[in-house]
Simulated scan of single mutants.
Amino acid sequence: MGKRAKRGKAETLALPKAARVAIGAVAVAIVGYSLLSRPAGVQSQQKPSPHQAQASSSPVYVATPAHVSVPAPAPIPAPAPAPLVEPPKAAEGPGAFVRQVVDYASHQTPGTVIVDTKNTFLYFVLNDTQALRYGIGVGREGFTWSGEQTVARKTEWPDWRPPTEMLVRQPYLPRFMAGGPGNPLGARAMYLGETEFRIHGTNKPDTIGKRVSSGCIRLTNDDVVDLYERVKVGAKVIVLPATAAQMQSSGPKIAEVQ
């Protein structure tokens, strides 16, 4: 091949190479211009991940640490001592005949028994100002009595022999009934002097607070057992007339018993 032909071939190959160089220079110039024209304070940011986006959207509050003084615990007050005497209850209501200690000014010797016929209560005197009160049943109209007696004797589960006067009024009554749960005298009996009257229990507790007897004073079996253990043979028993006892607002009181 001649020199002319070789030169033409070299020029043909050189033109595309020059074009590539020119294109590359133009690209470099464009990139450089874009870098120079961007504000210096702007930086490229990557798109946050979903976890990062959620975390950044939740507000965070940081409390300023402060010194908190804890007050000393208040002292626990000591419980009040239980009263030595149960306060008296009103005469009305289902609890009125429950055995209880009450204020009672009698000025009688401790151990004396006072029967308040009007209000159907029996008092066992403890001291000058207190007594143990029981609910009782008393004589019905025409069979009440009053006066002073002594406890002549005491019997557990007493036998019952109705007096002649009672048999005249109620001839259907048995002439004798052995002591036991079915006996109308109940669990205990305290006989008053030489009379036919007794303080005794009953197999009909629903009659307490009522006027149903023929003159005897009746208590529930639980109460008569309690009273039986307290009362001594020879103890004084005062039965007040139905008009003598007075009830005061501060508790059961009576005028001084002579």
Score class of each variant (00 low, 15 high):
180 G>Q: 09
247 M>G: 05
163 P>N: 04
185 L>K: 00
170 Q>N: 13
239 V>M: 15
208 I>V: 14
186 G>D: 07
212 V>Q: 14
181 P>M: 10
218 R>F: 09
191 Y>C: 00
207 T>Q: 14
199 I>H: 04
234 G>E: 06
211 R>L: 11
225 V>T: 13
211 R>C: 06
177 M>G: 04
232 K>T: 06
202 T>N: 10
182 G>V: 08
227 L>M: 02
220 T>E: 05
187 A>C: 04
226 D>L: 02
257 V>S: 11
175 R>D: 12
193 G>T: 09
170 Q>W: 05
215 G>M: 13
221 N>S: 06
213 S>C: 03
239 V>L: 10
244 A>R: 03
195 T>R: 00
159 D>G: 00
206 D>W: 15
224 V>H: 03
208 I>C: 08
241 P>F: 04
253 K>N: 13
189 A>E: 00
176 F>L: 15
256 E>M: 08
248 Q>M: 14
236 K>Q: 14
166 M>A: 11
249 S>K: 13
232 K>F: 05
188 R>A: 01
174 P>S: 10
190 M>Q: 03
177 M>N: 07
164 T>R: 09
227 L>R: 00
183 N>L: 01
168 V>D: 10
168 V>P: 01
202 T>I: 11
175 R>V: 12
242 A>W: 12
211 R>M: 13
249 S>M: 08
234 G>D: 05
192 L>T: 04
202 T>C: 10
167 L>R: 13
248 Q>N: 14
216 C>D: 02
220 T>S: 11
229 E>K: 05
234 G>L: 08
205 P>Y: 09
233 V>C: 04
223 D>A: 13
223 D>Q: 10
235 A>C: 13
208 I>H: 11
238 I>W: 08
246 Q>E: 14
185 L>N: 00
206 D>P: 00
224 V>G: 06
231 V>Q: 01
177 M>Y: 05
202 T>G: 09
199 I>C: 00
170 Q>R: 06
189 A>N: 01
